[in-house]
Each structure stands twice: as C-alpha cells, then as structure tokens.
Measured scan of single mutants.
Amino acid sequence: PQECLLLEPGLNEIMANSLDYNERLWAWESWRSEVGKQLRPLYEEYVVLKNEMARANHYEDYGDYWRGDYEVNGVDGYDYSRGQLIEDVEHTFEEIKPLYEHLHAYVRAKLMNAYPSYISPIGCLPAHLLGDMWGRFWTNLYSLTVPFGQKPNIDVTDAMVDQAWDAQRIFKEAEKFFVSVGLPNMTQGFWENSMLTDPGNVQKAVCHPTAWDLGKGDFRILMCTKVTMDDFLTAHHEMGHIQYDMAYAAQPFLLRNGANEGFHEAVGEIMSLSAATPKHLKSIGLLSPDFQEDNETEINFLLKQALTIVGTLPFTYMLEKWRWMVFKGEIPKDQWMKKWWEMKREIVGVVEPVPHDETYCDPASLFHVSNDYSFIRYYTRTLYQFQFQEALCQAAKHEGPLHKCDISNSTEAGQKLFNMLRLGKSEPWTLALENVVGAKNMNVRPLLNYFEPLFTWLKDQNKNSFVGWSTDWSPYADQSIKVRISLKSALGDKAYEWNDNEMYLFRSSVAY
C-alpha cells in the first residue's frame, strides 16, 4: 500500500478484514516500526519515573501501586492483599488454560486453511493473523472459523447495514437495554456533547472508545462508531461505564469510582452478554423472526463469544505479567523485547512474524500501555462479568443454560445491579461482590459453565490435532529472506536491522 494510513481508520481495517498475509505483515510491522521505536526511549523513562512515584508513596514499584486498587484492609472477613491478586490471577488462569488451548488448536487448523504454508500444525499462531493489530481480540476471525457456515449468520453486521443503522441508532438501542432493566436514560448533555462518529477531516481524533465523567452531571462517550456488531456491543460496554458513573455520582468525590477497576469494566460487559444472544437480537429485529436455535447455532454463537472473551485472556494476563516484571526490575532493559516474545510464545501461543530487536517497544504500540492504563482490569472484569451475569440471571428468573440468558426487561436484575453500582468505592469490593453474587472472591466457574458446550465440542473437533504449541517454530524461518527484502523496500531505514548471520545468508542466496 502506498497511501498514508492512520491506525483508525486504515490500518485497523486491514487487520480486521485482509486475507493477504503480506499486506497484514506490512501493516503490523509498519505500526510497530513507526510507533514502537519512537516510544522506546520514552517508555524507558516512564518506567523509571513511575517507579519513583510509587516508591515515594510506600509501594514496592509501580506494578505494586496498580495492584493496590484491589487492596482491602481493616474490614474483618473482607480483607484482600496485593499479593493475593497475583495468586488469584495465576490460579484462575491455570483453570482457563485447557479451554484456551483447545480454542487455540481449532483456530490454528482454520488458519492453516486460510494461509497454507504459513502455519505450523504444532506451532504458535503468527501475531499478525489474529483479527486486530495486537491479536487482543480474535472476533474478526469468526468468518474464517465459523463451525456451521450453512446456518444463518449470528454476526448481524450485514443486517445492521441493510437496515441503515447508524451510530445514533446503535447508542439508542444500548440505552433502551439499560432503561429496560430500570436504569436511567442518558442525559441530554450526553447526546449533545458526545463524539460518536469519526469527525473525519474536520479534526484529528483519538478513536479508541472511551467513556468520560467530567463532573457536575456531564457524561460523554468518545467513539468513532462503525456499523458493525462489534461496535454495537462496544456501545453497551461504554454506556455501562456511564451508568456506573451516574449511579455513584451522589457519593463524596473520592468515592466516585468503581469498587475496583475490574468492576467498572465488567458492568457494560454484562449487558453485552445479553445483547449478543440470538434471543435479544431477534427481539430488536437484527435476526429474522423465523431464526431457529439448535445445537449448531448454539456452537456458532459460543465460538463467536469465545473468540472475543476466551481468546483475549492469555493476551491480557501475559501483557500485565510482563509489565509487573519490568517494574519490579526482573527483566533487564536490554532484554525487554526478547522476554516479551518469549512470554508471548510460552503463555499465549503466539509468535512474532519477524524478529524484533531491542530498538522496538511492541507493548507500547497498544493504546492502554502508552496511555498508562493498568491492564489486569480486563482479566478480572471477565471473571466478574460471568459471576455477575449468573447472579443477575437468577434474579431475572432465567431457566436454562447461562449462555442463553438475556436480562433485558428484568427490573429485578437491574435493581440488584444498581444497588452495587451506587456504592461506588464506599464499600470494599469484596463486600460489594458478595452482595451481588454471594461470594467475595473472583471465581472462574461461571465462565467455564457458560462455555461448557463449546469446550465439549472443541475436544471432539481436536481429537486428531495437536493441542498446545511448540515454541520453537517461527513463521519467518522458511520465508525470512523474502520477508526481509520486502520489508526493507517498504520501510527503508526503519526496517529491522539484519545481523551478520542474516546478511551472510542473504549474500549466499543471491550468489547461489
């Protein structure tokens, strides 16, 4: 590609939709070469300064400071330590791993069909083939991996386009969902002041979706909304933040926050679980009234959910574990990228498509890292959202599997949720969690119950496949010279610098 592309739109479109291996590689590498390399010296300084700040406030390091958001002291029976968070994340991840490994094996087999000769049947997945710029969410792999393609499509993007949905309609439908469970409408100022579409040439905007509580009843969302099912669900997520903000607005200023950061992320995700169900999509006209649910549509639905929800958990866990180790000084600065990709291979089963030396800073190419967000919130929120969903479905008197529950129109479920939201940070999160779900610790069981039918199906699908991955295989081993030459021509001086062995191999191949 010759034109100058922004991340959004532009590069993200390539990473969402392109099936051209080399075009995807160009976009993936260009973003890291342009952005990651510029941020490397800044990120090194950032780590030093943030650690100084944390230690001045009596924390061991900046990662310890972040984990302090979960700490509860002096509340008998509800205490929770920063170290306990690490333990809980690690042991819940071990419980999730078998499901993830089977999802990984299934996706690898489907990617082998889409990119023959580029995928190893026992290796890691190349990082640039996973549906977005970071491989964070695998949602866009659904069209390549759908188990029963002859069934009606449960990705309702086409239906939204056919019905001329726009950003306003998407957010109005999200608002209807919250109102149906007894939560309030958005304010008039929300509709007047939010930026729900890309302003285009009028001004440059950071398009990463964010929710804003500017105080004095001024709530806004910034999002360059596209007419897709993914953005339909994202709208519910962002509006969930606003509902939380509005619910605790009466609290004293210092207590106007989520019980912990994971709670804030979980609220909209609960609504997304219901909004994505075929039952709900039928009720708002995005699935045909004669759409029939059966075992095959159930597996299609659960796989689509797993690509988004299960596929991202190792990504989140590994990223934050790397940062915690960096802040603690356990990874020397001259080994940041080496350790990043070692951990990516070992924990996530994902491999870099071309080698990256220590001039890169791949983590900082992600919005949340370069903008100083702690990231473990996206792991804890996933466990909380299924715990909350299970409890709210019980309040809504849902009968049947958890993945079929739609809590819309249940004011009982809405009241149970609101009673927790309005507390803000005035009560320990362990107590707030217990008030809703009857337990005071994160628990992976509801998530595993939700995906149980899919897990059973995946194990059957993978019975003749290798489950797990070898960390030795690299996608650039066989194609390295071709890849390096093409990237050198595209990126010039910003391309990865060849070492002596690679230059010798190149000259030998040319001479041959």
Score class of each variant (00 low, 15 high):
His241Arg: 14
Arg381Glu: 07
Gly217Val: 01
Phe253Asp: 01
Arg377Cys: 09
Pro209Asn: 06
Arg381Ser: 10
Val206Thr: 05
Arg220Cys: 00
Asn257Thr: 07
Val206Ser: 07
Phe301His: 09
Ser272Tyr: 06
Glu261Asn: 11
Thr308Arg: 12
Arg256Glu: 06
Arg377Glu: 13
Thr234Phe: 10
Ala250Cys: 14
Asp245Ala: 12
His368Arg: 07
Gln188Thr: 13
Trp212Phe: 04
Asp213Ile: 03
Glu269Ala: 14
Thr187Leu: 03
His264Val: 07
Ser374Arg: 09
Tyr373Gly: 10
Phe367Gln: 12
Ser272Asn: 12
Pro209Phe: 03
Arg377Val: 09
Leu233Thr: 05
Gln251Asn: 07
Pro209Gln: 08
Asp218His: 00
Phe253Cys: 03
Thr308Gly: 12
His208Lys: 13
Thr187Glu: 15
Lys304Tyr: 10
Pro252His: 07
His237Glu: 13
Phe301Asp: 05
Glu265Cys: 07
His241Ala: 13
Asn193His: 15
His208Trp: 09
Thr139Val: 10
Ala250Gln: 12
Asn153Val: 09
Pro209Ile: 03
Thr234Ser: 08
Phe253Leu: 05
Gln251Ile: 03
His208Gln: 11
Phe367Ser: 09
Thr187Lys: 01
Glu269Met: 09
Asp245Leu: 05
His241Phe: 13
Pro209Ser: 09
Lys216His: 00
Tyr378Gly: 06
Glu269Pro: 11
Tyr378Glu: 08
Glu269Leu: 11
Gln251Glu: 03
Tyr378Ala: 08
Ser374Lys: 08
His237Gln: 13
Asp218Gln: 00
Asp245Glu: 12
Met246Lys: 05
Arg377Ser: 08
Thr139Ile: 13
Phe219Lys: 01
Asn153His: 07
Arg381Ile: 04
Phe367Ala: 09
Lys304Leu: 09
Val206Asp: 08
Thr308Pro: 09
Leu233Arg: 07
Tyr378Ile: 11
Gln188His: 13
Asp213Cys: 05
Trp212Ala: 04
Thr139His: 07
His368Glu: 11
Leu214Arg: 00
Thr210Leu: 06
Asp372Gly: 12
Gly217Ala: 01
Glu265Phe: 12
His368Pro: 11
Thr210Tyr: 07
Arg256Met: 14
Glu265Thr: 07
Gly189Val: 02
Met246Glu: 11
Asp218Leu: 01
Phe137Leu: 12
Thr187Ser: 14
Phe375Pro: 05
His264Gln: 07
Gly189Glu: 04
Ala249Leu: 15
Thr139Ser: 08
Asp218Lys: 00
Asn140Tyr: 12
Ala249Met: 12
Thr210Ser: 09
Arg377Asn: 09
Arg256Gly: 08
Gly217Tyr: 02
Asp230Ala: 10
Phe137Met: 08
Glu192His: 03
His368Leu: 08
Tyr373Glu: 09
Asp213Leu: 03
Asn193Leu: 15
Asp230Thr: 12
Asp230Tyr: 09
Thr210Cys: 06
Asp372Met: 02
Pro209Tyr: 04
Thr210Gly: 10
Asp245Thr: 12
Leu214Glu: 00
Asp245Tyr: 07
Leu233Gly: 06
Phe219Gln: 04
Phe137His: 06
Glu269Trp: 07
Phe375Ala: 11
Leu233Cys: 08
His368Ala: 12
Arg377Asp: 11
Thr187Val: 08
Ala250His: 14
Met246Gln: 04
Thr187Asn: 08
His237Thr: 11
Arg220Pro: 00
Ile309Ser: 10
His237Tyr: 10
Leu233Lys: 08
Glu269Phe: 07
Glu261Gln: 12
Glu192Leu: 09
Asp218Met: 01
Asp245Ile: 15
Tyr373Arg: 11
Asp213Gly: 06
Gln188Arg: 07
Ser272Met: 09
Gln188Phe: 09
Phe375Asp: 10
Arg256Leu: 07
Glu192Arg: 06
Asn140Glu: 09
Phe375Thr: 11
Phe253Ala: 04
His237Leu: 10
Phe301Thr: 07
Tyr378Gln: 07
Arg256Thr: 08
Ala250Phe: 09
Ile309Lys: 08
Lys216Asp: 00
Phe367Gly: 11
Pro252Trp: 05
Arg381Asn: 08
Met229Leu: 09
Asn140Cys: 05
Phe367Arg: 07
Asn153Glu: 11
Phe367Glu: 09
Ser272Glu: 09
Phe137Val: 09
Leu214Cys: 09
Pro209Asp: 05
Phe301Tyr: 12
Gly217Asn: 01
Arg381His: 10
Ser374Cys: 08
Glu265Arg: 06
Phe253Met: 06
Asn257Leu: 10
Gly215His: 09
Asp245Gln: 14
Glu265Pro: 09
Leu233Glu: 08
Asn257Ile: 13
Glu192Thr: 06
Gly217Thr: 01
Leu214Gln: 08
Thr210Glu: 06
Thr139Leu: 09
Tyr378Asn: 05
His241Asp: 13
Glu269Ser: 14
Glu265Ser: 10
Tyr373Gln: 09
Arg136Thr: 07
Pro209Trp: 01
Gln251Trp: 03
Thr234Tyr: 05
Lys216Val: 00
Glu261Ala: 06
Ser272Trp: 09
Met246Ser: 06
Glu261Arg: 10
His368Gln: 12
His208Met: 11
Thr234Ala: 08
Glu261Asp: 11
Gln305Leu: 04
Phe301Ser: 10
Glu192Asn: 04
Phe137Trp: 09
Phe301Leu: 10
Leu233Trp: 08
Val206Arg: 07
Gln188Ala: 08
Asp218Thr: 02
Thr139Pro: 06
Asp372Ser: 07
Phe253Tyr: 04
Phe137Thr: 07
Tyr378His: 10
Pro209Thr: 04
His241Asn: 12
Glu261Thr: 08
His264Pro: 09
Asn140Thr: 08
Ser272Arg: 11
Ala250Lys: 04
Asp230Ile: 09
Phe219Tyr: 06
Asp218Ala: 01
Asp218Pro: 00
Arg377Pro: 12
Arg220Ala: 00
His208Phe: 10
Met246His: 05
Gln305Val: 04
Thr139Cys: 08
Pro209Met: 02
Asn257Trp: 13
His237Asn: 14
Met229Ser: 07
Ser374Thr: 11
Lys304Ala: 12
Thr308Phe: 11
Glu269Gly: 13
Asp245Val: 14
His208Glu: 11
His241Thr: 14
Gln251Ser: 04
Asn140Asp: 11
Thr308Met: 13
Glu269His: 08
Ala249Ile: 15
Asn257Lys: 13
Thr139Gln: 09
Asp230Phe: 12
Phe301Cys: 09
